[in-house]
Nucleic acid binder design. Structure first.
Lengths: 221, 221, 221, 221
DNA sequence: GATGAATGAGGTTTCATTCAT
DNA sequence: GATGAATGAAACCTCATTCAT
């Protein structure tokens, strides 16, 4: 919870417009080229600041990357949070969740791509641990909490481990996000379904995924 | 279907011991460092051959990568195929599938890591399309076929799109593979469940995932 | 006419001393080793700058080469231009031309060698076209214009195609330049004349070439 | 005169078909790529022999190059020789010469390109001296001899140095050869004349060059 | 705070030549 | 005579980071 900061103090003092510009340009570069191939000098130039100033704001390329990643994550996190604290039943929440994710994926494709990038990170385990904590803890918390509440109310099956089911749920949603935004997953979607996800009938995809999840969470006798 | 070759002919003529050594060393390097950071001079040296010879075997770093990736994929593909053509019911197959994947993930962790790496590939769409076709087409085929057969027999729900359900199933299995092998996913597993996947009770994980899938595929009235 | 730039902006901002040094060192390396065998790391080192900075100035080895070439060409071009716009008769101009070229060849031998190098260029036709345009267009223009003026005045024969005669003239002058500077042509000069061009009586060479050209351009009845 | 051999004895024992094939393939590779960029392993493969055998025939890449060059030169040399020993007057010879060169340039473009390549050679002066001797001596001899004979007969001007005039003549002819075959010279021809040499009216070019030469060699009072 | 010139290690790829068979 | 596997030095180019101004 004690979210760390990955930028230097100077970056906090920068006016919002420039701050957002830097993060957006960074996100664009990282998401299109990948972490290793992204060029921090290019990011600085595109953002209209000097490379020297960039290093006044961020200690390393990696810190810039993580800050960009968090910037994008926060937006979705907020939307998910609003859904999960509502009074809806779990399955209603799931539907809203899926719809929100579809929408968000299209609007903020670059953030999803960055998230996809970090999912393949090869670094020190300590560093990864910190990042995962940063990115996943809030989301996992709202999932698990919602499921537990539903269990208590008897809305969903009783024989499940809510943590594992939360993870399975997230895996499905994340994979869907990737299908909407990342090249490999989009092509995989095409291989499985025969159609391009961008030309697919969103409602059908949502409907099917909802049936899948609904049944998985429900156990009728 | 007519799978392309990514190595030069000279590599086919190499004796098996050396061939396997090169692919294993390559897999080790790619899976631990990631594609960009992997160093083919290092791979050549560790495999005990000159860099010049390496380039007699593979035209580019990328070709070496894909050949390593395919080498690992083929092993699992074969195992999955054997399961799916059996006479078992779909849910029995699913169980075997999960168990096989758990086992394979532990035995061939490096190949899973390479697959994870390619899932975040940022390259030309043409190249990605070729790789996805290479890696996913056979697997998707056996999933979809098995599901369709089960539908015809009335073993599973009738209101599903088998292609989408196959994709959802694969997403769950792939995510599990990653949890067993890739740093980010392992840490994510820990954030969600509170335990390290390597110290987790495999049986419980399998059991829970099976319940999730079983219910998703079944629709009792 | 609107001559392209082959260096990056950063090179324009460099102080003149360094700029000239880089071009001179580059010219020396290219003219002595040839384009392919020239080593830009060596050029950078000899010019006292890092290789990284070299690439801040020039995008590629080729751009450095062309910039060096143009640097040398401009000097001679200027001298030729001054001669050709004078009021002298064509044959007087020719004499001045030959003398200037002899002098220039000795003073700027390395640039002639680079020009000789580019004359054997094997590259994409588009690239060659651009370079030829760059190097030859001004020179051809002043030759053709001078010849046409002389024709109008009746100073020279009327039955010639001025463009072709300009080319023939340039071929003779260029060959002479090469004889003064390039190994193959110098040795060829020796094979034909029995003497080394550097030990030859310049006045005799000039005198003979002038007679050759003079007669070629004149048609007495 | 004592022509050196640049191939090993083994190459002399090879049957003619293979010998010619090797030289033709080599010529093609050298003329299209240039000496440095040509790849001797590729030449061997295209000629259908092993690289090992190639080195049984030629000690170095350079020896192969020179052997190819001589192979092509011999053909033209023979044709020129036949012209120059004829009874024709010098100017008639010159016309035949130009026509032969035009024809030869089109039929054996690759050899001209190789000759063009060697004209920009950067090597040890000793080596270049040997090559020049090899290539130029016979040609210069027949030029000079023909001119001297014409002088004795009073067919041409008496105030010329026959050796220098022979060189000037050769320079003009060589430049024409290059215009017909080498990219830089062809583009230069276009810049000077406005037309592509391949679409030019050959007769006009020949006619003009002949007038140029004719006048240069003649001195009417 | 802001600049951007400068660094230089490091990585992929090429290819002439050798030599064991 | 013939093969072709094997070598490894060398070259172009990139880019994260520093630091003097």
């Amino acid at each position: 919870m004690l979210q760390k900061k990955y930028n230097k103090d100077a970056f906090d003092r920068v006016d919002e417009e420039r701050r957002n510009l830097i993060l957006e340009v960074g996100t664009e570069e990282f998401s299109s080229k990948g972490y290793e191939s992204a060029n921090i000098n290019v990011i600085a130039k595109k953002a209209g600041i000097s490379i020297g100033l960039m290093y006044k704001y961020f200690a390393t390329k990696e810190d810039l990357f993580i800050t960009c990643l968090k910037y994008g994550t926060d937006i979705l996190e907020k939307a998910l949070y609003d859904i999960m604290i509502s009074d809806d039943k779990l399955l209603k929440k799931a539907e809203k969740l899926i719809r929100t994710i579809c929408l968000h994926s299209k609007q903020h494709a670059n953030y999803i791509k960055m998230y996809n990038e970090i999912c393949a990170e090869k670094g020190s385990i300590e560093r990864i641990r910190v990042i995962v904590e940063e990115i996943e803890s809030k989301r996992s918390f709202i999932y698990v909490t919602s499921i537990c509440q539903a269990m208590e109310k008897g809305d969903v099956r009783a024989d499940m481990n809510p943590k594992l089911f939360a993870l399975f749920l997230d895996n499905l949603l994340t994979s869907l996000q990737f299908a909407y935004t990342c090249d490999y997953y989009r092509e995989k979607f095409r291989v499985y379904t025969g159609i391009d996800v961008n030309e697919a009938d969103d409602e059908q995809v949502i409907d099917q995924l909802l049936r899948f999840i609904e049944s998985a969470f429900t156990l009728e006798k």
